[in-house]
């Protein structure tokens, strides 16, 4: 078939880390082999958080996400929390209420049943919090050694009126950029356990559903673009928003909320806190006249208390993110090649 490619060489770990290396793998191998990528709504080629299908006056939003976090239990949550919240959030950042999810478990032989039970009950806590149902699933077990513990793949759907989804390409010059809380919590929490660093960290993962935050923002103002800063962190998200929207972004480092513990752990681990995964945050673009109102509504929600306006979309330097640093210098915030750590979500 014309255009079909199997690719050369082998897949590397960086190519699964959410940055430019993964984008290359997707475009060179995944997209080149798929010709049926959707039409009308949000398609595979848009590489947005979810895709959508237009049916008459309604638009059905669908997303899927595999979770391979290592270790499966970490401060602030576990792979169950992550699997439910990750998918719910990918629907939520399209500006759509998540309705239901599916869950497919691939488990390594010998995995403790007690752990599985904890994982499922954590998943349920997330579902209860946002009133989302788990309506179908699948369970497979593979031989010991064929898998490291457990992989959970969840898919989710939501429904909205046609044309009402919020995309990641809608930023306009002048829009205020809001982040709904502190950056780097999930990545640093997981990494610190994994590296066995004895930081005596109080930092917990921020993993959790963001629908309440999104709903509050949308009720208060005109949200032009949205994305959750998961793999590749804030830096990746801002760069994607800028390049897909054809605008520049200017942000101020001083305004980016970050917990002191996270900042110092990142320094010690040698990772960039702006390039590491968040699992309970949203980056929003809003029209400037409503920005303050959106901010105060978001701050009134449980998960949005530390929200902040961190910058503005501009006409200049299209596709680039310029940061004014903590000491007043200016530099580019480059898109990361990948998340600093593999298997973080």
């Amino acid at each position: 078939m014309k255009g079909v490619s199997t690719g050369k060489g082998s897949v590397t770990i960086e190519q699964g880390s959410g940055g430019s290396a993964m984008m290359r793998l997707i475009s060179e191998v995944v997209l080149r082999n798929v010709t049926k990528w959707g039409k009308g709504g949000v398609t595979l080629r848009d590489l947005d958080d979810s895709g959508s299908l237009v049916c008459g006056d309604t638009e059905i939003v669908l997303t899927t996400d595999a979770h391979t976090v290592k270790p499966p239990f970490f401060p602030g949550g576990n792979i169950g929390t992550l699997a439910a919240a990750g998918t719910i959030n990918d629907i939520a950042v399209m500006g759509v209420k998540p309705l239901a999810i599916s869950s497919s478990l691939v488990i390594e032989e010998g995995f403790p049943r007690g752990d599985l039970s904890k994982i499922m009950s954590s998943m349920n806590e997330v579902l209860e919090e946002v009133d989302v149902d788990l309506i179908t699933g699948d369970t497979k077990v593979v031989e010991k050694g064929d898998l490291d513990g457990i992989i959970i793949t969840t898919s989710g759907i939501g429904v909205t009126r046609k044309g009402k989804v919020v995309r990641d390409n809608g930023l306009r010059p002048g829009d205020s950029i809001i982040i709904t809380g502190s950056v780097g919590d999930h990545g640093i929490a997981v990494l610190s356990v994994r590296e066995g660093f004895d930081f005596e960290l109080k930092t917990k993962s921020d993993v959790g559903p963001v629908w309440d935050v999104v709903k509050a923002a949308m009720s208060a103002g005109r949200v032009t673009a949205m994305k959750d800063p998961t793999r590749g962190g804030l830096a990746n998200t801002l760069n994607e928003l800028a390049s897909k929207s054809g605008v520049g972004i200017e942000i101020s480092e001083e305004l980016i909320p970050i917990k002191p513990d996270v900042a110092s752990a990142a320094e010690m681990l040698g990772v960039d806190p702006y390039a590491i995964t968040n699992e309970g945050k949203v980056v929003l673009g809003v029209r400037p006249q409503t920005a303050k109102k959106v901010l105060s509504r978001v701050r009134a929600t449980q998960r949005g208390r530390e929200a902040a306006i961190i910058g503005t979309a501009v006409r200049d330097h299209q596709g680039e993110v310029v940061m004014e640093t903590r000491v007043g210098g200016r530099r580019l915030m480059e898109p990361p090649i990948g998340d600093p750590a593999p298997r973080i979500c």
């Binding site: 004014e324 640093t325 903590r326 000491v327 210098g329 200016r330 530099r331």
Partner: peptide, 9 residues
């Protein structure tokens, strides 16, 4: 120098 954008100052 790079991280803090010192050159721009």
């Amino acid at each position: 120098v790079a991280r803090f954008g010192i050159r721009s100052l």
